[in-house]
Design a protein around this nucleic acid. Structure first.
Lengths: 342, 342
DNA sequence: AACATCGGTGAAAACGTTTGAGTAAATAAA
DNA sequence: TTTATTTACTCAAACGTTTTCACCGATGTT
C-alpha cells in the first residue's frame, strides 16, 4: 500500500492524497475527495512509509521537520539491580514520550561505554534526539551530541554542564545519609557497596572529610551491589572490624543482605547498629525491621527526561539545563543514636 | 555527509562508493580506491542514511533485504511490579538482539491493548519483526502479524498456537504451587493477588477442581499485586475467614506484604500458616523467614525471544514454535505440613 | 589478428514520500 | 463583460541509497 495505490483507487493524484493525509490546511481537497481518501486509508490500513517520509523530510544532520521519534541509549552496568533501576527509568521515558506523541525509535544498549567500537551501534537513522540513561562518559557524550544534535542525560551522576541533565544526585544523597547519621551522634560509620565509579561512595568519603572524620579503610568493603553481595560483604566487615556503630549500604538490595547477616550474627538493629541505604524499593517497607532509606523518584526522572528532551527538540529552551529531582529521607526503623562500639 | 560527498572527495562515482561500503564481493574496486574511500569514511564519520537505504531496500510489506532491526511491543499492565518484570524481559531481548547484530528500533508501549486506536502507534517504519512482551490479545496479535510479518510473544500466558511464543506458564506454575501444597496435606488454601486476567489465579482454581476441592470465595482475595496490596489483602482475608492452613500469593511482592501482616497478627510461619508464591525476586531469599517460591527465568525469556525471532526472520524455522521455559520450585522456609486450621 | 573474458567503473532508474510551481475551472469583484 | 481571486487539483523534482546495465581497457585464447 502506497500513496500511489490510494491515488489510483480514489482517482486522484498522489499529491492530493499526500496533502489530505497530512492535513495541509491551504486548499486541501474537496470534502468529497477527502472522504473518499480517508475511507480507502481506513479500509486498507495504510500507513505512510516512514523511510520515504524521513528521507524526504531531511536527513539526520540538517533536519527540517521533526520525526517525532527519539533514541534511548542505555548503558549497562555490572550490577543487575541497577539495570532494573534504569529499565524503570526507560519505561518512564517511553510513557511520557507517548503522551507527547513521540515514539522511542532506538533502544540501544551500550555494553561497555569505554569502548568506542560500541558507538557503531547507533545507526544513520534519523531521530530528533537521544536520551542517555544510566552511565556515560565524556567521549560517549560528545559522540552522541555530534550524532543526534539533541541529547539529554538522566541518571545518578552530575555530568558536564553543557548537556541537559535530569539527575537525582547519588553523591548528595549519600551526603544526606551521612549527615543524618552524624547528626545522630555516629562517628564510626561503615560503608558497604561498590566503591568504583560509584558516587554514593564518593559522597560517603566527602561527608567524612567535611566533618573531619577519618576515612578508615577497614570500615569500607567493596562488594557487588546485590543482596548476596551485601550479605557476604557484611560478614567480611565483621571479620575486619567491629569498631563502628552504623552502616551505610549503597542501596536497598545490599542493605537487605546486610540486615540478614547482622541478624544472623545476633546483632540488634538499630540498638547495636544503625543501618541506612538509598533507593526505597517497594519491599523495603515491609521487611523487619522497616528499613530507613532515601527515596529516589525513578520513573519521574524518566518522564522528566522525556519532557526536557522534547521541549528542547521543539525549541523550548536553548541553554542546557540541569534538573535536580529531590530525593527524600524515609525515616523508618533501622536508625537510632549510637550506643557503643560493638 | 552522503555518498555523493564521499564520491566527490574520492574522485569516483557514487556507485563505486556504495559498492565499497557494502563490500560487494564481485568486482568491488581497486585496492587503492577502497583504501581512499574507507579513509574518507573514517575521517568524516560517515554512516549511511538508513531512511534512504531502507526505502531502496524494500518497503515494510515486501522486504527484500533485512534491516537487522526489530520492534519491541510492550503492553502495560496496571501492576507496576509486573511492568518492571517485563522491562527486565525487554532488557534480555535487547541484549540478545545485540549479540546477533540486530537493533531494537521501536519501543512501543501499548497502554490499553483493548483499544484498537492504540494500534496507530506502530509506524510504517520498516523492521524485520516484532516481539510482544507481557500482555496481548487476539485482535492486537493479528494486527501486528499483518503489519510486521514476523512476530513472537513472550510472557506468562499461552497464546494462539500459530504464533511463536516463549513463555513461562503462570497457569502451570500456579498448578505446581498448589500440587506441592496439597501434597503436604493442605486442603484449605487461600489465594491473594489479582484475579482478573491472571492465569496464576486460573491455575489456582484448576488445581483445586482437579483435586475435587471446593473453590471457596471467602478464601480468595482480589488485591493489587503490590506489597501494600498483599498486606491489606491479608488483613481482609483474616477478617473474612481463618479456616485455612496455607496461602498462595500470586507473586513475591504480594507475599512480602502478606508475611508482614501475618507476623503483625502474631501468626507463625510456617507453623500456623504455610506461604508460597511465584517469581523468586532477589530479595526474597534474605527476608525472614526465607520465602518458598517459584523461580522464573525472566531475562532468559527475553533472550530466547530475541533468538527465536531472529531465527525466524532469517528463515531458520517456518512452523510456529512454543517454547516453554522451565520454572523451578525453590524450597525455603515458609512451607510445612498443616497443623490445624487457624 | 580476431575474439571472448574479466576487473574496474559510471550512468541512471527506482524506492515512496513531500512540496513548490503550475493549471483549469469556478467564483467574486470591477 | 472583463478581470482578479479562490478552489481543487496535477506535475515533477528531490531526498540518499542500491543495483542493473553498459562501457572500457587489459589480458588471455584460439
Amino acid at each position: 500500500m502506497t500513496l500511489k495505490d490510494i491515488a489510483k483507487e480514489a482517482g486522484v493524484s498522489i499529491s492530493t492524497v499526500s496533502r489530505v493525509i497530512n492535513q495541509k490546511g491551504t486548499s486541501a481537497a474537496s470534502k468529497e475527495v477527502q472522504d473518499r481518501i480517508w475511507e480507502i486509508v481506513r479500509k486498507t490500513g495504510y500507513s505512510p512509509n516512514t523511510a520515504a517520509r524521513d528521507l524526504k523530510n531531511g536527513n539526520s544532520t540538517s533536519a527540517k521537520k521533526p520525526t517525532r521519534s527519539i533514541a534511548c541509549i542505555f548503558a549497562r552496568t555490572d550490577d543487575p539491580m541497577k539495570d532494573i533501576f534504569f529499565s524503570t527509568l526507560a519505561r518512564g521515558l517511553e510513557e511520557e514520550a507517548f503522551h507527547h506523541n513521540y515514539i522511542v525509535k532506538h533502544l540501544i544498549t551500550f555494553v561497555d561505554i569505554d569502548n568506542p567500537a560500541e558507538f557503531r551501534r547507533v545507526t544513520g537513522d534519523r531521530v530528533d534526539g537521544a536520551a542517555v540513561l544510566g552511565r556515560c562518559n565524556r567521549q560517549m557524550l560528545s559522540f552522541l551530541k555530534k550524532h543526534f544534535n539533541h541529547v539529554v542525560y538522566s541518571g545518578l551522576n552530575t555530568i558536564n554542564a553543557k548537556y541537559d541533565q535530569i539527575i537525582c544526585d547519588g553523591y548528595q544523597a549519600a551526603g544526606s545519609v551521612m549527615e543524618k547519621l552524624i547528626e545522630l551522634g555516629h562517628t564510626h560509620i561503615a560503608y558497604i557497596g561498590d566503591t568504583k565509579e560509584e558516587n554514593r561512595y564518593e559522597g560517603y568519603c566527602a561527608a567524612l572529610s567535611a566533618r573531619k572524620l577519618p576515612l578508615r579503610r577497614e570500615l569500607v568493603v567493596h562488594t557487588p551491589m546485590t543482596t548476596e553481595g551485601g550479605y557476604q560483604g557484611t560478614l567480611r566487615l565483621l571479620e575486619k572490624s567491629r569498631d563502628f556503630t552504623a552502616i551505610f549500604c549503597s542501596n536497598d538490595t545490599v542493605a537487605i543482605g546486610t540486615l540478614h547477616a547482622l541478624q544472623e550474627k545476633g546483632l540488634r538493629i538499630p540498638k547495636d547498629v544503625s543501618l541506612i541505604s538509598i533507593d526505597d524499593i517497594d519491599v523495603v517497607q515491609y521487611i523487619t525491621p522497616l528499613l530507613t532509606t532515601i527515596h529516589i523518584p525513578i520513573e519521574e526522572m524518566g518522564k522528566t527526561a522525556a519532557k526536557i528532551l522534547i521541549d528542547r527538540i521543539e525549541g523550548g529552551h536553548r541553554l542546557p539545563m540541569k534538573i535536580l529531582l529531590p530525593f527524600s529521607l524515609v525515616w523508618r526503623e533501622t536508625c537510632a543514636e549510637p550506643r557503643r562500639t560493638l
